[in-house]
Amino acid sequence: MSRLGPFVTLAAGAVLAAGLGVASATAAPAGETVAAAEQVTGATAQTTSAPGEEAAKPVVVRADYAGRVERTRALIAVSIRGAKAIGYFCDGKTEAWFIGPVDGDKVKLKGFGDAKLNATFGGGRAEGVVALGGKEWDFVAPTVKKPSGLYRATRIVRGAKIKASWIYLANPNGDGFIQVGTASVNDSRVTTPTFTPDRPINVNGEYVVPEDVDGFVEEMS
């Protein structure tokens, strides 16, 4: 028995690694998670399907959308978490955060000043209008799954407040990822470092660990 022990140990490690491999490869595409309408308080049931059955109509309770903003170099991300939605627009120079409640399959999110983001979502995509600095653009953003999505990092190091945000998006042509982001120290811009998922990122000499939406949604209000 004890002569077999070491082989069993190696085999157990191999089986564990294989299990993690299968789980990771088949991980459910995050996309959209729907729930019956009555489970979400304050949400009016309104989706594309079955207009007659109010009670059973599914509403999106969790989703991540990201895509390009038409006629710009910007990317936009919209994430739904229960009754709360977060939006982020960034072209590498201008950035804007949006937040607001979910109303059925619509969001009307407010940003700083008169910036706003209105979108309708469901069926695998969000589409709408983002208005910023007196201009507005249309966008269509499909659902994305990890590692694509919205990331944010904040950290205070010796009194200096570091902030960085990125939208990271699988290239629609299948060739790697595209990204935009901004980084700042004490609210003044610094060079935006390249985002690599699940790795610490060096912002102006200090390391931060970007969080996905689940990691920072609670902090945003």
């Binding site: 990771s24 990890k146 690599t196 998922p197 610490p200 660990v209 990691g215």
Partner: peptide, 15 residues
């Protein structure tokens, strides 16, 4: 690299 992997839960992130 996938930039994402399944692992033990209960931590604030992969790192």
């Amino acid at each position: 690299p996938t930039g994402f992997a399944i692992g033990p839960a209960g931590f604030s992130g992969a790192l």
